[in-house]
């Protein structure tokens, strides 16, 4: 516990996972190294089958890696006994896409469950469980059974249950993927809130860009069992530097493709966003058309991006490029070629 800013709560070193199946070996994770610091909301995004769920499960050893080292809360998971691992798991809670509540137990009994198994007395557990249900806004449904709740309510019960043992880490495996937009934003609000007030470090696995945008501070892009790029959300969203990253991010935003030599994507960030960048370009260089424009607001800041269609004129293009470079804008052309200062 030296420097709280750099303290890494979860640290993966060269983690691999190979599943042995009848049809041969399947590599789910390949040499994944990752550090997640205390207080972060860290997103891991990728297509289905990219290995996201396997990756998050190595962080509480629901999946035991076939190679590499996982260190969580200062403990190397591979070196722990079953009992020690179970004790550690009280501090690393998890929520799931399909909620995974006990269907035969009431809401309050579900929230009590992790407390009961860690040896807390029944009455004490119920008291704490009621508080947590209040926190997620479901105190009035404590006697209901999960089958009587909506998806969003079930996930909120699951969050209350996850918080019961006062964890330091919350792992979220596609926690909003089965929810409608309204329930999704309610769940994300709760996650943001518990991160802020309780200081819980959150790892979010998702294929939804919007989720990462709304709550994450840093993000990793995964593909074929490997981490392709990692960085602050805004950086990765605006300036993905791998083709996989570009594909996932741009498809996620439904950007028009840069498929001709006359299309460019300009990123406008920082204080430059306040100036009329494109208007000045048009005024000073010449006419260009705007195919697409948006502003991405993330928890760590905002940036805009514009896709321009240039007239098919080589001289004008050179002039536009010259202007953008002189202004210090980051821009990208067909084939992923990037200009930046």
């Amino acid at each position: 516990m030296t420097d709280s800013n750099t303290e890494s709560l979860i640290s993966l070193r060269e983690v691999s996972k190979v599943f042995k199946t009848d049809k041969g070996d399947v590599t789910a994770l390949e040499n994944v190294s990752l550090d997640i610091a205390r207080g972060e909301i860290f997103g891991i995004i990728g297509m289905s089958g990219a290995g996201k769920s396997t990756l998050v499960r190595t962080m509480n050893y629901l999946e035991v890696p076939t190679g590499g080292e996982v260190k969580v809360l200062g403990k190397i998971l591979g070196s722990l006994s079953r009992k020690e691992l179970n004790d550690l798991r009280h501090k690393t809670a998890m929520i799931f896409q399909h909620f995974n509540l006990l269907m035969q137990k009431t809401v309050i009994d579900n929230v009590c469950f992790p407390l009961i198994i860690s040896g807390v007395s029944g009455s004490e557990a119920r008291k704490l469980a009621m508080e947590l249900l209040g926190l997620v806004g479901l105190a009035d449904r404590s006697g209901a059974y999960p089958a009587q709740l909506s998806g969003g309510q079930k996930q909120r019960v699951a969050i209350a249950r996850a918080l019961a043992t006062n964890p330091e880490i919350l792992l979220c495996d596609e926690a909003t993927s089965a929810l409608d937009p309204q329930s999704t934003s309610a769940v994300l609000d709760i996650l943001r809130e518990i991160n802020k007030t309780m200081g819980i470090t959150i790892v979010v696995i998702t294929h939804q860009m919007s989720v990462v945008k709304e709550i994450c501070t840093r993000v990793a892009i995964m593909d074929h069992g490997r981490i392709m790029e990692t960085g602050p959300v805004l950086e990765v969203f605006m300036k993905p530097c791998t083709s996989v990253g570009r594909h996932i991010i741009f498809d996620g935003f439904s950007l028009p493709p840069l498929d001709t030599d006359w299309r460019i994507r300009v990123v406008i960030e920082g204080d430059r966003a306040l100036k009329p960048a494109i208007a000045s370009l048009i005024q000073e260089v010449g006419p260009v058309s705007i195919l697409y424009a948006d502003v991405q607001n993330t928890v760590v800041g905002s940036a805009g991006q514009v896709i321009l269609e240039l007239p098919e004129d080589e001289d004008l293009r050179k002039a536009v490029f010259g202007y953008l470079r002189a202004q210090g804008h980051y821009f990208e052309v067909k084939g992923g070629h990037v200009y930046s200062d």
Binding site: L62, R89, T92, L101, I117
Partner: peptide, 28 residues
């Protein structure tokens, strides 16, 4: 449901607790 068992594991339930408090209850 495998997911419910997995959730219990993620909470640090022992094998006996999973059998007694999850599998027996959920399959009653």
């Amino acid at each position: 449901d495998r997911g419910v068992i997995e959730a219990a594991e993620s909470m640090g339930a022992s094998l006996w607790q999973i059998m007694y408090r999850v599998m027996l209850v959920e399959s009653r």
